[in-house]
Amino acid sequence: MATTARAPGAVLDRAQAVRWRESWAQVMEGFVPHLASLEDTLCRVAEAVRGRSPDRVLDLGGGPGLLAERMVRRWTDATIALMDIDPVLLALARGALLGEVRALEGDLSTPGWVDRAGGGYDLVTVVMTLHYLPPAQVRAFYDDARRCLAPGGLLIVADLMPDEGLPSLMGALNPAPDEAVAELAWAQWWSGIADLQVLRPLLAQRAAIFENRPPAEFTAPGSWHAAAAREAGFGEAGILWRCGRHAALAAVA
């Protein structure tokens, strides 16, 4: 008998959830070149900052939970949560992870997400999410994220940051991915998801959430993000990874 897991508004077959998450990973690799390198660097830096693995981790904009799952496998004693606004992606996370990761609904454009997530995290990550928000909300996010972290905790933001304003640890730049191919893969993935009868109520919820929320496509340079982090009260802030226009910023609370 197939294993199933209940998510709000849907009952998912676990094998089906796993399969769709795997195809999501392929789509994301089209948008973010060398994504595996980013994730490995992120984890190694988090371990180096504390001298050991983190105890509490929060992955914001965590989607179907791929990064959160990888962190669970790497840090077996850690408590890991993810947060996303998308009910479909959250359903896939809950259906595949079966309680290994706490999956929370939250909107990063408002400060209420901090109350839902709680505080005291050693590591907060947000990958390919902040470009959806306009500049004022991104600035507010840095303040919210600092309140979410334990003293000395680490925030890692990976997104489109098209410059070399801060030192890169990755060396020479790599070419940007084929955006047209990536966009087509994205559209095909969502078209396939729409055929899943069990997810149609959540797809309707998703449509209502994003109906009046077009992405801001905010792509400030890394130096802008570092300055915003420092203004929010972070101490050290700098680029830890870069690949073409994509970069990851680390900031210590």
Rank of each mutant, 00 (worst) to 15 (best):
A2G: 12
G9C: 02
A10T: 14
A10D: 07
V11M: 02
Q16S: 15
R19C: 03
E22C: 07
V27F: 15
M28K: 10
G30N: 13
L35F: 03
A36Y: 01
S37P: 05
E47C: 15
R50E: 07
P54V: 05
D59C: 05
G61N: 08
L66N: 12
A68G: 01
A68N: 01
A68T: 06
R70C: 07
M71W: 03
W75A: 07
A81S: 15
L82N: 01
P87H: 05
E100C: 08
A103L: 11
S109F: 08
S109Y: 09
T110A: 09
G112D: 05
G118C: 01
Y121D: 03
T129Q: 00
L133F: 15
A136P: 01
Q137I: 05
D143E: 12
P151H: 02
G152H: 03
L155R: 04
L155F: 13
A158Y: 13
D159G: 02
G165S: 11
L169Q: 12
L184D: 15
W189F: 13
W190S: 07
A194H: 09
R200E: 12
A204Y: 11
A207S: 05
I209F: 14
P215Q: 05
A216L: 07
T219W: 11
P221K: 09
E236V: 08
H246F: 15
L249E: 04
A250Y: 09
A251S: 07
V252S: 10
